[in-house]
């Protein structure tokens, strides 16, 4: 409940030139950071696995449509891969902009509303997708806080940097505008 909804307006996408610029970057460092991030989130939010139920073993493909890479996410055991293209054989695929993904994870947009406005694409096992969406929505994840805890003494600068970047991407919460 730390953030108000941003769902009453479409969120922006990353400019194509920026997407092009980050295309050559190596994926391994990002994978190591995000993998640690996922493990920490699941450790600190055990209710996530409870709500995922049997779908905790599903392999989710997450494709930010405005980034030149994608994520393969598994909850149990926690595992995150950063890949250039999503492979075949995943249980479910979710595609939307990075801004929408961040807002979804923080509960700032409604997944059904994104689907109605065609900003969210989903394929594969719909039960797994619904369980994931509901588990994340209930967890009330504080992404800046989680990130700060990952960086120890550099946590506060990391938190501020993330919040700045996120708010530039998604805009501030409605109550602040």
């Amino acid at each position: 409940m730390s953030h108000s909804s941003v769902a009453s307006r479409p969120l922006p996408t990353i400019p194509p030139l920026l997407t092009l610029a980050i295309r050559p970057l190596p994926l391994l460092p990002l994978q190591l950071v995000l993998g640690g991030f996922l493990q920490r989130i699941l450790r600190r939010n055990p209710g996530l696995l409870d709500r995922l139920g049997e779908h905790r073993y599903a392999r989710f493909g997450i494709k930010p449509v405005d980034l030149p890479f994608a994520f393969i996410v598994e909850a149990a055991p926690p595992r995150l891969l950063v890949v250039r293209e999503l492979p075949q054989g995943l249980d479910a695929r979710v595609s939307t902009s990075l801004a929408n993904l961040l807002a979804l994870v923080e509960g700032r947009v409604d997944g059904d509303a994104l689907m109605f406005s065609r900003q969210l694409g989903i394929e594969g096992n719909m039960e797994a997708v619904l369980a994931l969406r509901n588990a994340i929505d209930d967890a009330g994840l504080d992404l800046p806080g989680e990130l700060a805890s990952l960086f120890g003494p550099l946590g506060e600068p990391a938190r501020r940097s993330f919040e700045l970047a996120r708010d530039r991407l998604t805009g501030p919460p409605e109550e602040e505008r």
């Binding site: 108000s4 769902a7 979804l104 509960g107 409604d110 997944g111 059904d112 509303a113 969406r133 929505d137």
Partner: peptide
């Protein structure tokens, strides 16, 4: 009841 927090709140 199937909707997310953002829907509920708004």
């Amino acid at each position: 009841r199937q909707r997310g927090r953002a829907y509920i709140e708004s």
